[in-house]
Structure formats: C-alpha cells, structure tokens
C-alpha cells in the first residue's frame, strides 16, 4: 500500500515581473512526495529549482508571484493560508536548509539565541526547556560538547559544523518535510560525505520527507529515490533514480550525464551540451532545449512538448517520444 503524499505540488507557475519582461522562473512543475521519501530536483543555475523550493515555503517576494497552480500540504492548500498561518508552518512542519550556512545564520547572535528563538516561536516551552532541546539537537547532528558550543557565534564554527547547526535548526520542531537547497555545495568532499550521511541517518530516525535540490548528479545518485530534472523552469524528466541513470530518456539528461568526467582508466572525451542556457525572459518557441539539442527536429522549434509518461512512472518531455507513440498507434 502506498502512503498518501504529504506534499503535492501541482502545475506550479512562479513568475517575476521585471522591467524587461516576465521571467517564467518556474513554469508548470508538478510532483508529490510521501513521508520518509527523498525526492531530488536537479538542474543547472537558473533552471528554477530553488524558486520551486521558495514557492513551497511561500518565500517569493515582489516582483515575483505564484501565478498559477497549487501546493497541498496534508490535504490543505498552502497558497490559501494567511501569512500568519504560514509562519506557523514554516520552520515547524516544513523547514529548509540553505546552501550557504554563513549567510543564513545571523552573525551577531549566538547559536543558542537563534535556536531558542526558533523553538519558542513554535512551541510553548520555557527558556530552559528550549535550551535543553537545543543541546539535544546539536548532539543529534554530531556537534561535540554541545552545551558549551551553544554559546558560540556562527563564525566560530567551520563550514561543515555551521551546516550541522543549520540542520539542527531546521529539525528543531520535527518537521515533516525538509527542503535541502544545495546543502553540501559549499563544502569539501569529505565534509559533504559526513553531511549526506547525517541527513540519511536523521531521515531514518525521524521519518521526514526530504526534497534535495542539487546540481550534482553524484549527490542525487547517492541519496535520492525519485528525481526530477529541470531545464528553464520546466521539468523535462521525472523518474526513479535507477531508471534515470540506467535509461535516461531526455537529451538534456544525456548531456548532463555526458558532461561529468568519470573516474575510469580509459579516458573518453567529455561530451558537453553545446551553447548556453536560454534567457528566461525570451524563451524560444517550442521546446526550450531545442536550440542546444543534438537530436532536435524541425517541429521541436515549433511545438512545446508535454510531459509524457513514457514507461512505468518514467515521465519525459520530448517530441522524440511523442513521435514514437504516433508511429505505434497509426
């Protein structure tokens, strides 16, 4: 029996109204995630993966707005919540870990003050109870001598330790969904390995759903169960992680996989994707990827393909497959 999804995003459109036109940062994203599951969102800079996360948290500020679609959390729409109700959810039921732990912690307050503030904003507890909870959390994320470290300021921690503090802060109210936006991008590989292992262990212990946003296919292969690949604001492929790496279907995914150097004896030349990502203010007609696609056909420049279920639970947005369907049915 499959569990009910805890969070579903349907047909989300987030747009920014700028002087030089409307930027469609997120353009029709749908997915759902179940408790205890890890969903990966991969893409390059500007693909809309972080804006998707910010939209879920309702953190989109002017001139941006959610133009269309819905976000359901445990059967309730987050978009119809008041700001006050949303504040109660943020950091409590759904929380977020950001990429850069230096800019997301306040440098002028001790870690204790920041953690106690978060806990007491959501829980009706005394200051002492909040401090005890903070110690427990720092222990949980593996910070040695937690009680004395509480008095430290963010700059007194190393990058990896700071990211642990961020994770402890995000976990302070046992969230049901944790959004991790490039949580290890700023870290060295040995520290990255520690943090990924920590997140996986905590997920097992606490049973939360994780949305892992990253540009690193290695991280995806390591921790995610299902993966959504985004390009220019749209999901272009969505599949189980094994399926995605064994049978990638979208030419963009092929390009991403071909661009990573593999550590094997016989070196092969990298196969990069030609050209540059499109300007989101002036997306090409038809498929956004067509101008860079080796397999583009004439009609790719005209028709914007829909996200099709190509095989069992493997969705792809590409005319190469629609074409095949047509041949089969006619």
């Amino acid at each position: 029996m499959e569990q009910e999804p805890i969070l579903s995003v349907s047909n989300l459109h987030t747009q920014f109204h700028t002087k030089s036109g409307i930027v469609k940062a997120v353009d029709g994203v749908s997915f759902d995630i179940r408790p205890g599951e890890t969903l990966g969102i991969v893409g390059e800079s500007g693909s809309g993966k972080s804006i998707t996360a910010m939209s879920i948290m309702r953190l989109i500020k002017d001139p941006g707005k959610i133009a269309k679609g819905d976000i359901m959390f445990k059967g309730e729409s987050l978009l119809s919540k008041s700001n006050r109700e949303m504040r109660a959810i943020r950091g409590d039921r759904i929380s977020m870990v950001f990429q850069d732990p230096m800019t997301s912690l306040n440098p002028v307050f001790t870690v204790e003050k920041q953690m106690v503030e978060t806990i007491r904003a959501h829980r009706n507890v005394s200051k002492k109870q909040a401090v005890d909870r903070a110690v427990e959390l720092l222990d949980l994320v593996g910070i040695p001598s937690a009680r004395s470290r509480l008095k430290s300021y963010p700059h007194e921690f190393s990058g990896g330790m700071r990211q642990r503090v961020m994770i402890a802060l995000a976990l302070s109210c046992d969230p049901e969904v944790l959004i991790a936006d490039e949580p290890t991008t700023a870290l060295d590989v040995t520290i990255q390995a520690q943090i990924l292992e920590l997140l996986q262990r905590l997920q097992k212990e606490l049973g939360m759903a994780i949305i892992m946003i990253t540009h690193d296919l290695g991280v995806v292969a390591e921790v995610c169960e299902r993966v959504m690949v985004m390009y220019a604001g749209k999901p272009v492929e969505f599949a189980h992680v094994h399926e995605l790496f064994d049978h990638p279907k979208h030419p963009y995914t092929w390009g991403l996989i071909g661009s990573i150097p593999k550590i094997v004896k016989e070196k092969v030349r990298l196969e990069p994707i030609q050209g540059l990502p499109p300007d989101l203010r002036a997306l090409p007609k038809g498929c956004s990827f067509a101008p860079r696609c080796k397999h583009a056909m004439d009609q790719c420049l005209e028709v914007d393909p829909a996200l099709l279920e190509e095989s069992d639970n493997h969705h792809v947005r590409c005319l190469l497959y629609e074409e095949k369907e047509k041949v089969v049915t006619s």
Partner: peptide, 18 residues
C-alpha cells in the same frame, strides 16, 4: 578523499572511509 566522491551511479554503494 577518493572514497568520499559521490558517484553518479545509484547501483554502486561505496565503502566509505569517514
């Protein structure tokens, strides 16, 4: 260092030296 590289292969679970 080498064991810590995340590899783009979900089938391979690496022995990691933490």
């Amino acid at each position: 260092l080498l064991s810590a590289i995340p590899e783009a292969n979900p089938h391979k679970k690496k022995e990691r030296i933490m």
